[in-house]
Structure formats: C-alpha cells, structure tokens
Amino acid sequence: MQRPQRPFMNDMMGNFPIAMAYVPMQQAPVLYENLEEAFNRGTIFPELDKPFKGRRGKR
C-alpha cells in the first residue's frame, strides 16, 4: 500500500500505530470560486462539503 503524503509532518510517526485514531490533515485546499455559493453551502472547501440526503421511505 502506498504511504500517504504528509509533507508537513516529520517522520517520527512512521506508520500509524494501533490503539489510536487518525484524521488525515486537509492538504493544499482548494476554495469554492463562488464564495456566496460556498456560504450558502456552509463551507468554502468543496472537499469538506458533505450534504445529507437520507430519507426514511417505506420499510
């Protein structure tokens, strides 16, 4: 498996030791071009834009 890119970190961590959880750092983020649209959506970062579309429906 390819080692993830973490340009900001020193190499002390090596792999990810177990008994801990890790959230990847956002890297070199792109911003929405239209900031008004970004505001309406709730984030300026398209990669963090995660809308909800769940529906109960019939079971």
């Binding site: 900001f8 750092m25 956002q26 900031l35 970004a38 505001f39 984030t43 300026i44 970062f45």
Partner: peptide, 19 residues
Amino acid sequence: NVLDFTTTELREYLDTHPY
C-alpha cells in the same frame, strides 16, 4: 456575511495549518 464566513473558515483552517 459571505466575507466574514470566508475569514472564519480560513481562521479555523489556519489554527491547524499555521504556516
């Protein structure tokens, strides 16, 4: 609203990416 929101998002990003 839009500009303040943009700067808020950037501030929170910069808190964890200060460089």
